[in-house]
């Protein structure tokens, strides 16, 4: 099998970890895939740059802002100078660019396996109502507002406390109207309109990582429950679960929306009711958990992207434990120097 060079972003394995290292490790663990990992980094202190047993080569990237020309040029530079057959973008901010330029990148021999722009827009929290109605999953009572008057009306309808959420990022629990108005203004200033006002639901936090083939079929999925989280709300320990209602809703999601690429569904399960909280159109930071229980989704993605054989979707066992831990490495400053002066390591 030809060696494949796969670009992976989100190699910031920090206290708020990006998904990249888990994705890269997964690719390395497919013994039949000959993969070299190119780390796409935005900061010279991203630990993945220095983890040479996982990331073979790292490049500093420009931020994926503006029209994206500089970003795409950088990818083409990597292609020309090191080689780049495929990219798995793992950060939200990169996805619109990668989706927009997917055909151009493919024309230059850089493959991706992502949802289309219409599918991508479904992740907006203002679209979750449409999704929940189609996949037999509950949504906390939700109002989409674009004014303070609308916010006040929504609070009156839903009742306090409420979650005040940006369309794509950030969410704040608000116990008073004044608190909600303050969060509303902060979110508008940072992320713009609309703002989502949502009922607070309690229960077990359960997530699913999955991969759709773009034709309505699943290439694999794993459900987990978060057992403990960090102060930043990131999973620290978890356990695999098979909540039938949640997994059925995910299968419906893949089929109904012909989802292509990786995704994470965040849910809250209370008794027999499953609430949809969020959809992330990328691998989550804990996606190595799925690999650890026998469902190597990054490897399956690359195989699918290159029309290589993909084994039938394997099953996983409920009751497998995930434990994140801290670790340190010591290296020479030369690597850091290369990252900031040359923009590539080694």
């Amino acid at each position: 099998m030809k060696e494949l060079i796969v670009g992976v972003s989100g190699i910031n394995a920090i206290d708020n970890p990006g998904p990249g290292i888990g994705v890269a490790r997964s690719l390395k663990e497919d013994a039949e895939l000959k993969v070299k990992i190119v780390g796409l980094a935005y900061d010279a202190m991203e630990p993945g740059i220095y983890m040479d047993w996982v990331v073979d080569k790292s490049y500093m990237m420009p931020y994926p802002s503006g029209n994206g020309d500089t970003f795409i040029e950088r990818l083409l530079h990597i292609k020309q100078n090191y080689g780049l057959d495929c990219v798995i973008p793992n950060l939200d901010a990169e996805l619109p660019l990668f989706i927009k330029y997917a055909d151009d990148l493919a024309a230059h021999g850089i493959r991706t396996f992502l949802p289309g722009m219409e599918q991508f827009k479904l992740r907006g929290k203002d679209r979750l109502l449409d999704i929940s109605a189609k996949i037999n999953i509950s949504l906390p009572r939700t109002k989409v507002v674009t004014s303070v008057d609308g916010l006040l009306k929504a609070i009156e309808d839903i009742g306090l406390p409420v979650m005040v959420k940006g369309s794509f990022y950030k969410a704040y629990r608000s116990f008073t109207t004044a608190e909600a108005i303050s969060h509303y203004h902060d979110l508008v200033a940072e992320w713009g309109y609309p703002i989502i006002v949502q009922q607070v639901v309690t229960g077990d936090e359960m997530n699913v990582v999955g991969l759709g083939d773009g034709e309505g079929n699943s290439l694999g999925l794993v459900g987990i429950k978060k057992l403990s989280i960090t102060a930043l709300g990131k999973i620290w320990t978890g356990v695999t679960v098979k909540n039938e209602k949640m997994l059925a809703a995910v299968a419906d999601f893949i089929r109904e929306f012909k989802w292509r690429g990786p995704f994470e569904l965040e849910c809250i399960v209370h008794d027999d009711e499953v609430f949809l909280i969020e959809i992330n159109p990328r691998f989550p930071a804990w996606s190595y958990f799925a690999t650890g229980v026998g469902i190597n989704l990054p490897s399956r993605l690359v195989r699918r992207a290159f029309d290589l054989p993909v084994a039938p979707v394997p099953d996983y066992e409920a009751g497998k434990l995930f434990i994140r831990y801290t670790y340190e490495l010591v290296t020479d400053m030369a690597a850091f120097q290369k990252a900031i002066t040359k923009g590539e390591v080694p």
């Binding site: 356990v239 679960v241 909540n243 409920a318 009751g319």
Partner: peptide, 17 residues
């Protein structure tokens, strides 16, 4: 439920043990 001989019980649907 998944139950072992030592009485450890795991609920695969909820993740509770």
């Amino acid at each position: 439920l998944a139950i072992n001989a030592e009485g450890f019980i795991f609920n695969p649907s909820t993740g509770d043990s």
